[in-house]
Design a binder for these strands. Sequence first.
DNA 1: GTGAAAGCGCTAACAG
DNA 2: CTGTTAGCGCTTTCAC
Lengths: 358, 358
Amino acid sequence: MASIHDVAQLAGVSVATVSRVLNSSESVTEATRAKVRSAMLRLGYTPNPSARTLRNNRTGLLALITPDIINPYFAAVASGVQDMCRKSKYQLILCSTGGDESIEISYLDLLSNKQVDGIIIAPPGTHSNPKSDAKIQNLLNRNYPLVMIGRRFESETVGCDIVTTNTAVGTREAMRHILDGGHSRIAYLGGPNPSVAKTRLATFRSSLSANGLIIDENLIFQTNLTLEDGYKICRKLLSVANRPTAIFAVNDMVAIGAMIALQESGIAIPAEMIVVGFDDIPLAAMFRPSLSTVVQPKYDLGHIAAERLIARIEGLVDRFETISLPTHLVIRESSMSQQTSKMPEADNQLSRKNTTVL
Amino acid sequence: MASIHDVAQLAGVSVATVSRVLNSSESVTEATRAKVRSAMLRLGYTPNPSARTLRNNRTGLLALITPDIINPYFAAVASGVQDMCRKSKYQLILCSTGGDESIEISYLDLLSNKQVDGIIIAPPGTHSNPKSDAKIQNLLNRNYPLVMIGRRFESETVGCDIVTTNTAVGTREAMRHILDGGHSRIAYLGGPNPSVAKTRLATFRSSLSANGLIIDENLIFQTNLTLEDGYKICRKLLSVANRPTAIFAVNDMVAIGAMIALQESGIAIPAEMIVVGFDDIPLAAMFRPSLSTVVQPKYDLGHIAAERLIARIEGLVDRFETISLPTHLVIRESSMSQQTSKMPEADNQLSRKNTTVL
DNA sequence: GTGAAAGCGCTAACAG
DNA sequence: CTGTTAGCGCTTTCAC
């Protein structure tokens, strides 16, 4: 591997000069610049990033830590981050923790320690991760550039940029829609513990209360946020004595898993059970029946988070901000109110042909 | 940020000693070791990775470059890589190119330049990427530690470790199964260009020929490897004059997208159209009808690739090897031969209840 | 406009 | 068993 010295020697200049053309400093003659350029080319020279980092204290790298990159929701977020990185000449490193706190911690350690210039962290998929929360708090105290997607801490006054969505609005809209459909026994398929998507659950509860409905704790389920686990939890749900007539799921993956379980049990959607999800992943519009869901601006979430992070790294912002993006409900087949009377079998199969893809 | 000097000073020893306890060299008294340890703790010291890398020429990082991390196939591969990395104390960096060659190239440049100790590269999702192929060839010539998952080059004698699957066997088995079902008009939904999954297409053709069937080029389609694109291409397929009765898709995402299009058009699976996929992603077994598919040992692919890469980095292997893992067909609802006579409507819906989840 | 030299944090001879 | 020191490749004063 050729070093800056080799280039300098071949070009017949000093290393300082080479460094100058490398950093496109003005004060170099066009002639010397050309000499150096050609020497670089001839040697196939590329600067050593570690040396640069050691010297400059910056890497040009950003990291995105997500619990589960396979979830289309996070993929969309990542895509937004990616685009902003490219625009600003940063490279993105993706870190998927699989919901494992120890992996999350090891990433935080690794990355924050001069490996990347800043970190975007999305909420954990599994639990509240007290240890890694402490780690994050610690980074923030050291003024490390970090932006969170979605709220992670209770405290209002966390010293950190947050980009989040107004899930309460979307959730309320969804609950309104479900209640307007005349449903009173509504199941909530939530995250693996109550702290995940806390606002959604809280809004679920308050919407029920506001409508004078009692909250049946037996209809509040906990599940991992995958299609498979949504499927499983829904099978469990179906064994409940007084089966609900509506399902509100914490995300689309769980909702679609649930719909598969329903279809397998021959339960017509939406005739016998309506389903509403959260996120609006691409599959939501394609699945049959298509899934009603609360739209989140996933791409924007990532894009704005990256923009904010880069601004912070480059010292363009000083104050912390919490940016909240809007959400809204989109109604599709899975919760459409039926004009036809209930015809248990094959009902939704027949109606399917008359509906178009969104 | 505390440096090794600060620790040395606080502990009252030299930097060499601190470095020794850092690298767990034997020749340090338990007493001094303790002193140093506590100094580190007090200062919250963590070694600067750039300095280490600059000195040692190794980062302890591995990169996995995939075209599309959101595809469950690659996620499973990544998981295998991840586990092996953890076992061997390497950290994994995930790079998703989104099938964009320029992104792939910039990752190759970035990573190979002392940022990571080695690279695992999965095939591109889109095209044959001549430029990045050249880049890879260049890295290999420089003896850079790199292992490929799946064949990427024509040449047999590529100087590189390859971990791949014997797709010809699985494909032949799948075609045998389809042909045994009495189908003669079989569509192939392939990658975005013929070079993607070349063997599958070649085996598709040869299986037809071997059975005396003529190959209808109108039934060979090209599509991106996503669910959405599988859906779209299937709609196009359905507009063909003499509709086929079987679909063989290059991967499960495309196959499931196609099934959604079929269901939407009221075409019964498998009564009117059978579908066979490739990969065996989790959704394949869960979707209704469940998808017949060629199983690939995805996790093992990643695991073995990482093992091989690490061995090479650590100088434990010298020769290049091509490791080929087995594939096999698993038959599910989507291609089950029907005992009942053809009953276009709702036929597969009824049979559904009698089948169990795999 | 260009060069000499110090130093970023760390490791590995080499000396003692 | 421990300390001194050179140097990994780069950028950046400070001279000239």
